[in-house]
Amino acid sequence: MDELDRRLLTELQRGLPLDSHPFRVLGYDLGLGEEEVIARLRSLKEQKVLRRVGGIISTKDIGFTSALVAARVPPERLEEVAAVVSEYPGVTHNYQRPGELNLWFTLIARPEENLETLVDEIARRTGAELHLMPTLQTFKIGVQLDLTGGADDA
């Protein structure tokens, strides 16, 4: 990654223009032509720095519900319980963290599903103590990392 890649990625996280040639527009400010922007993005994808370019869907605004769930799992059962949790397509993040609540996952329910019912089912299947932690107030949502002015070339 060079400095131009970093600026390109920082800009691309903010948004891709709604234009028939979005990569050309994206390149203007950076002084890059369309073909170079596309070539750089393809390479960044191959390097697994760029995960995807696409729509960031607002879960609740399309009628889905979501929450963070914290679980208290006996350490010796952590992998087994985590595997059951990860089976659910609505679980997008599932992490071990330190402390008594040692497994944390995000759960999304479809409009025809019910979040509490899903959590009850997971609790029943795993025998783990689960705590549903819905969002009461959102102060910030959106991962836009500033890559510019950072460390040396990686």
């Binding site: 996280q13 903010r14 948004g15 760029l50 729509g55 960031i56 991962v143 990392l145």
Partner: peptide
């Protein structure tokens, strides 16, 4: 879709770790 907020934006999403 952007006005209705079905889409927050169209954008690039990174792998945090690999992005440093």
């Amino acid at each position: 879709y952007l006005k209705r907020h079905w889409l927050r934006r169209l954008a690039g999403v990174l792998y945090h770790q690999r992005a440093g």
